[in-house]
């Protein structure tokens, strides 16, 4: 597969390490989250046949974490974002 890195252009997927569901960015708020929320965050992952937002780490490149929107059936990649931007957009800060 080829991942179109937002900063570096098209790169072979062999340069990346895959870490699955991009939901990992949504770490529960330690102040308020319930045990159920922590359980879901640590253990529950969607495994859709179709569009999937997932984390890829550019280990063999600039070490960016990316959020790649990929169709797990066709492998078509419709969107590639810098994970840091996604995290910020979701309200994460420090």
């Amino acid at each position: 597969m080829i991942i179109n890195h937002p900063l570096l252009g098209p790169r072979d997927s062999a340069e990346f390490i895959y870490m699955g569901d991009a939901g990992l960015i949504n770490r529960p708020d330690p102040e308020t989250a319930s045990g159920e929320e922590w359980y879901a965050y640590a253990y529950l992952r969607d495994n859709p046949a179709g569009e999937h937002r997932e984390l890829w780490w550019h280990e063999g490149g600039d070490r960016s974490w990316l959020v790649v929107t990929r169709n797990t059936v066709t492998h078509e990649i419709s969107k590639v974002e810098i994970a840091r931007d996604v995290a910020r957009a979701q309200g994460r800060s420090k």
């Binding site: 984390l55 994970a83 995290a87 420090k94």
Partner: peptide, 19 residues
């Protein structure tokens, strides 16, 4: 060594993007 570095980059970029 590699795994920890990957993890630390994940925390830095995805959990603490403004740090």
């Amino acid at each position: 060594a590699g795994k920890v570095y990957q993890h630390m980059e994940f925390v830095r970029q995805c959990l603490m993007p403004d740090a």
